[in-house]
């Protein structure tokens, strides 16, 4: 098993070990109950698998877990992937006064928010594309 900084931490945690190597991009996805939340979550996980960033817990930010709030503050960039116009994830960042974020929104892609409907692979791919573009634009700014 690969090690992290000489410890026995598994490889999957390596991107979060020792502050990582390149830009420290964190991914926060909507975690609601509708299809757009599933799309946001799966898109964020896809980006993490691609090495575009590390997914972190939006609920922890909402719960004011101090270490998690500071983690977001100290990131180079936070991607906020909201599901719908309620902008819950973005509002959590705003409530904490955290400004180093960029937002993408699933419903901006023409996807309707519906309860009880599963996300499709095409929708997840579209959301991942939008998220990648938002990250690239923010890092170039």
């Amino acid at each position: 098993m690969a090690e992290c900084c000489g410890s026995s931490r598994p490889k999957q945690a390596a991107s979060s070990c020792c502050g990582g190597g390149g830009k420290n991009v964190l991914l926060y996805a909507c975690s609601g109950g509708a299809n757009v939340a599933e799309i946001a979550d799966r898109a964020a996980r896809r980006l993490m698998a691609e090495g575009k960033g590390t997914m972190f817990c939006l609920a922890g930010l909402g719960a004011d877990i101090q270490g998690m709030v500071q983690t977001a503050r100290d990131a180079d960039l936070n991607l906020v992937l909201d599901g719908c116009p309620m902008d819950c994830a973005k509002k959590i960042f705003q409530r904490h006064g955290i400004t180093n974020y960029t937002q993408a929104k699933v419903t901006d892609l023409g996807i309707e928010k519906v309860k009880g409907v599963r996300a499709t692979d095409e929708q997840v791919a579209a959301a991942a594309d939008a998220a990648r573009a938002a990250i690239a634009k923010a890092l170039m700014a």
Partner: peptide, 9 residues
Amino acid sequence: GFGVMMTPA
């Protein structure tokens, strides 16, 4: 336990 998943902190 500190809510820290990235080190060092």
